[in-house]
Design a protein around this nucleic acid. Sequence first.
DNA 1: CTGTTAGCGCTTTCAT
DNA 2: ATGAAAGCGCTAACAG
Lengths: 346, 346
Amino acid sequence: MNTQRRVTAKDVARRAGVSQSTVSYVLNDTPNQTISDDTKKRVRLAAEELNYMPSAAARTLRRGTSDTVLVIIRDAQIGEILAQILEGVVHTLDPHGLNVIYRRQRPGKSALDLCHELMPAAVANFAALTKDEIGRIQEWNIPVLSISFDDTAPTDAGDTVILAQTAIGRTHVAHLHEQGHTRIAYAAPDIRDVEDYDTWRLTGVRDECVTRGLPRPPVIHTPYNLDGGMEAAREILALDPPVTAISAFNDEVATILLAAFHRLNVPIPERLSIIGVDDLPLSPFTYPSLTTINIHAYDIGTHVAQLVLRTVRPDLNLPAPPPVGELTLITRDSVSAPVSPPGHAE
Amino acid sequence: MNTQRRVTAKDVARRAGVSQSTVSYVLNDTPNQTISDDTKKRVRLAAEELNYMPSAAARTLRRGTSDTVLVIIRDAQIGEILAQILEGVVHTLDPHGLNVIYRRQRPGKSALDLCHELMPAAVANFAALTKDEIGRIQEWNIPVLSISFDDTAPTDAGDTVILAQTAIGRTHVAHLHEQGHTRIAYAAPDIRDVEDYDTWRLTGVRDECVTRGLPRPPVIHTPYNLDGGMEAAREILALDPPVTAISAFNDEVATILLAAFHRLNVPIPERLSIIGVDDLPLSPFTYPSLTTINIHAYDIGTHVAQLVLRTVRPDLNLPAPPPVGELTLITRDSVSAPVSPPGHAE
DNA sequence: CTGTTAGCGCTTTCAT
DNA sequence: ATGAAAGCGCTAACAG
């Protein structure tokens, strides 16, 4: 367990009988350098034999930029979906030698400090930075690539992947309306963290209701526990005029309501249709199985990562990812045509 | 958007009218250095005014170790539980200025390379490294703190937090047996990734059955889809001699089986009791609600992080975390006394 | 109590 | 086609 001396480029150079700079050229495939094949071979062999590993710190210091990509996440609870997005990012960046660090955007300490400390190759912003903060980071020549929830703004700059939050709400209403529902409630989460997503989605629901001439949807808050869920379920049943369908903020809210209605002996989807968002791994296994929207979280992750790669490795000539994330409606059994009012059956 | 020149310690020194080394001493609170309060004040003021941020790369290069903690995870799918553990680690390390990088242990590229590149302050090993690999990393004076699944080995070194996988299996059997069940099946996942966890848990189940003189539990594999789940459920019903309870690998498997039995009109827990592991956010909302074991994943994360802190910041004199993670049995409605055989009711 | 100085290991310009 | 040398920004040993 004795400390080992580090094998440096100098050692490799000595062993290969070349200068240190040549080692650097060979190992980094530096363009515009003409080096004989024989020299290259010797250097690579020496590096191999000595088990040489370059020091990231020295490289960063010299180059002024590291091989790190800083992912900045808003201070929300990291659940299944965020984990999936992160997975996509890591899987895409890993093969290119880019290490991912993730940081919650906390009220106190600014992400800017960390940027200047780490000198990341790029920042991946998960809807956590303000325009101003982004500008300040870019002043240091650190590119910022973002996931945005705002699908109402134009898609121009090529530095943003949009996770279309309002489109989700609109898709909910569109699907329910096409099934024949006209009176729809919105089930909001009762958690501060997700306020933003919630606002976007509710906006989408409202907009689409307006577009289709449907009444403004009432909003019911659903706590994340069974008693609270039962309470919310009763509130929904007591709505006057009654609703026949529920657009749920996400699959968790939908699952809780499903559980509550089951215990209240309210038949789903006969009495009420419910649609969720996220298509969680267990959503096919609720009773009834949950109709939902798959937001392709993993793909969203790979897409921002592709934006990062296009910026830090322009030589790769990678194609641009689609600017807006795809949404896939997953029709299962929690949504049907309404049975009480005279709707058109499917 | 023009590039800014970096503010260095030299600039601060000039501004404060002191030498660069003094700046370093003041800003790092270097012990054994006597510096007048006035000088300290001047230096801090200058740093503040110039908005000085030290370069992590230079510090790492000089010190030979960075402010990074490398978390190494086996190449399993990162789900809710892994995310919770990671959360615990990040939340604990963040306030101390330690940045977390996480890396999947992939077959190809070794984690050792990354260690030598990054020179992390420590490595947090999520049951992903072999003894040999750990030894090799420690040769470079990089401490390795681990989460281990092996609760059969002694707890001596103070560098390991144990997530007691076999104890989980044993707790399952103990609880079911105490409810009066004697014939128990084990529901395994049908996923390669989790093979290891699975093996440990099954071992625990088997051991406890032996201890209690119960028959060796049959193992049924449960694919993660409804058809596969129904198939598995039918297999369980067809078991001869019949079982009255199921120890499920985790809450996902348990939920899938619950869904399958529901669709087969098999009453749970009357016909079969089911117990899971993980206490997922949605487990209270299955039907019937799922009896399970909370493994306190977040706490496991904070505990390894505490081991890390104790090693890299011994000056903090932090207390040692408990060596073995707590397990909490969460009794809900999916387990009851068996009704068909003459068992003792609760 | 404070300053001088010598690197940490790498990349890149310039010279040969 | 290859080498010499300068320095990135910081820390710590040592000298005053």
